[in-house]
């Protein structure tokens, strides 16, 4: 006990170890996003108006997508137990206009297929429908629902979003994590996201 009590790392060694470790955590956060933007599969998503209309909180715009609403018809495989927090794997395919839509969803994993991208939702509260099976629609988030903008610039994006003129180009990593790469307003890219 006495040796345990008296042991103390040299303070500067402790400082370097702690600072390096915490920098590593921050670096990992930044780099895991950058690597998705660098090499992930590109998809283009339509955004939806959000109700209530004025959702600019703080300095981010809340984004909602058609692919956030998953109809029961495209869900395959076993549903999870009610009251759990599962993730949903969603297969996206581009339509004629180049916008990606959900074509298949599963609570398990989906195999990779040519011409499609599988994106994973964040964990969400799952409740069974009235018949005990999957409910008619599932509402999920992908972690690309917030876009932070400089103060005062959110309103323009919001009205564009509400007029359904705003599109989002995202990239999806191999593990199914999506990141926003750029916002497209009226067909023109705005807010091109640098890697760092």
């Amino acid at each position: 006990m006495t040796t345990f009590r008296s042991f103390r790392l040299p303070p500067l060694v402790a400082a370097i170890l702690v600072a390096a470790l915490q920098t590593g955590v921050i670096g990992y956060m930044v780099e895991s996003r950058a690597s998705i933007l660098r090499s992930g599969a590109a998809i283009r998503l339509k955004t939806l108006p959000v109700d209530p209309r004025d959702l600019l909180r703080g300095d981010y715009v809340t984004l909602s997508y058609p692919v956030s609403t998953i109809p029961k018809a495209i869900v395959t495989g076993e549903p999870p137990a009610a009251g759990t927090r599962p993730r949903l794997a969603v297969r996206l395919r581009p339509d004629a206009a180049g916008l990606w839509t959900a074509t298949q969803a599963s609570f398990g994993d989906l195999p990779a297929e040519e011409g499609s991208v599988v994106v994973h939702s964040l964990p969400f509260d799952y409740y069974a429908g009235p018949d005990g099976g999957v409910p008619d629609t599932l509402f999920v988030e992908y972690g690309i629902e917030r876009y932070y903008v400089p103060e005062g610039e959110g309103r323009a994006l919001e009205s564009a979003r509400n007029a359904e003129e705003l599109e989002v180009e995202a990239r999806v990593g191999r593990n199914g994590t999506a990141q926003i790469a750029r916002l497209i307003l009226d067909g023109k890219p705005v807010y091109d996201e640098p890697l760092y």
């Binding site: 303070p11 702690v18 915490q22 996003r33 972690g143 917030r146």
Partner: peptide
């Protein structure tokens, strides 16, 4: 970087960072 991720996970990472700092110092 627009990571609208998990608040719980972020708090847990912060807690872990504080534990390591408390132990090493």
């Amino acid at each position: 970087y627009h990571l609208s991720g998990d608040t719980f996970q972020a708090m847990l990472v912060w807690f872990a960072g504080a534990v390591v700092a408390a132990a090493l110092f």
